[in-house]
């Protein structure tokens, strides 16, 4: 009676109801990605090309938003100077959760052509914000960008909403017990030395 068991315990890993709800929510988030209108350097030109008619990013449900409050992901398209890095961090933090970030081009990935001698260039945007998908290229082909969007959608649709809580709770418990053990060790040590 797998089905009934699953219904009995909807929170469980193979819960059918919440599993379906989770799928639905993930589907919604994966298929409707609004990106922040934001470009940095030469890669942004290619990013514009992706949005234009020939490549048409809107096919994937990606609509430009000019306010970070309404965006779902940010595309770091270009050279990140140290001055801009602070702004990018602010912008990223203004995007409401769940939020994602795509690093486009060598410059954003690791400083690109400036990784050795660029005293003013951040050597990789992942030092400032967490990146979900890295696109190699200088600049990446528009098709490569579209593939990255598909990859991001894949990642979003694999995400866990309900099981996550359980997993996080378990991890918390483990962490707590570890901490406790450490504490006990510490106390024992202290006692010994006294």
């Amino acid at each position: 009676m797998g089905l009934l068991n699953a219904l009995d315990n909807p929170i469980n890993a193979d819960g059918i109801i919440l599993g379906k709800v989770e799928d639905l929510f993930n589907w919604g988030r994966a298929k409707s990605n609004w990106f922040l209108q934001f470009g940095l350097a030469c890669c942004a030109i290619e990013f514009m090309a992706v949005n234009a008619s020939h490549f048409d990013l809107m096919r994937f449900g990606n609509i430009p938003r000019s306010s970070p409050r309404q965006a779902d992901y940010i595309v770091i398209s270009g050279t990140v100077t140290l001055k801009m890095a602070e702004r990018i961090k602010i912008l990223f933090e203004q995007i409401p959760e769940p939020r994602y970030a795509i690093s486009m081009g060598s410059c954003a990935n690791s400083g690109g052509p400036y990784w050795q001698h660029g005293y003013n260039v951040l050597k990789g945007i992942d030092r400032v914000i967490p990146i979900d998908v890295y696109i190699p290229g200088c600049p990446p082909r528009p098709e490569a960008f579209e593939q990255a969007v598909l990859k991001l959608q894949e990642k979003i649709s694999m995400e866990e909403i309900f099981k996550k809580r359980e997993r996080v709770a378990q991890e918390d418990k483990m962490l707590e017990s570890m901490l406790k053990a450490e504490e006990n060790n510490f106390i024992e040590n202290v006692n010994k030395h006294i």
Partner: peptide
């Protein structure tokens, strides 16, 4: 050209 990835070390 389709080799974007989730982890930079893969590059």
């Amino acid at each position: 050209f389709e080799y974007s990835c989730y982890d930079r070390n893969e590059l």
